[in-house]
Amino acid sequence: MTAAVPPSPGSFAAARDAVALSWRIFRRTIGAKYRKSFLGYFWMVAPALLITGGVVLASDAGVVDPGSSPLPAMLSVFLGTLLWQVFAEAVDVPYQAFEGARSYLTRVHFSRAAVLLAQLHESLLTTAVRLLAVLVLLVAFGFWHPGLALVPVAFAGAVLLGLGLGCFLMPVCQLFSDVQQTLKLVLAYGLFLTPAMYQPQSGWFAGIVGANPVSPLIVAAREAAGGVVLSQPTTFALVIAAGVVATIAGFALVRAVAPILIERMLLGGR
């Protein structure tokens, strides 16, 4: 009879096991999510398509001004909206990971990071589908140049930034549903605080849009896709770096506080 001893937490072997387990959880559960859907991947881009259609119609009617962009208005709005969506869903990854795995977490001891990574795989799949849709549209509209390589980097930045922020917010969201409700509200309507649909140039609203950490990603992705030189390369690089640091620190935080959260899950609360 074997008596396998699990690797010590924090070791390389434990991290490798967590990645392997997360992949197995993802493979087994991803099918369940779309089992009742006939349109499957379409729903990953449908909201952005609808918003884009709406903004283009509003722009034609002179109600909304999408602002100047090296891309056609339709592509510019579609790209900006998708990047915000990718960011917003990445913020939700840690919370959804723990909520979805509630029944395992309270009954079996296994790597908590695996749950987070399994949900991240799902988010990455959605991101990949969205990225592919954008790239296909860009190429179809004749944008085929080396600058396109920076578009996936902007998407990766949105995922990392969202995931890192989500890791820091998740413990509080798990403990207090008020915070979770507020976050949902911010993420749902936060699109209006980005340069996805318009580009305010002055005033306090322009300041808010400019301070949005996703804004540099949207601006850089548009410029890269349009084949023009990046106007804010340093800010773009800083946002990507901040995403990497936040994700690493966030994973460490989630690992440390997981027992406290699981204990509260057992108490029957949120």
Binding site: A4, I25, R28
Partner: peptide, 8 residues
């Protein structure tokens, strides 16, 4: 497969 994966 899922259950046994969680059980290591």
């Amino acid at each position: 497969f899922l259950n046994l994966a969680l059980l290591g």
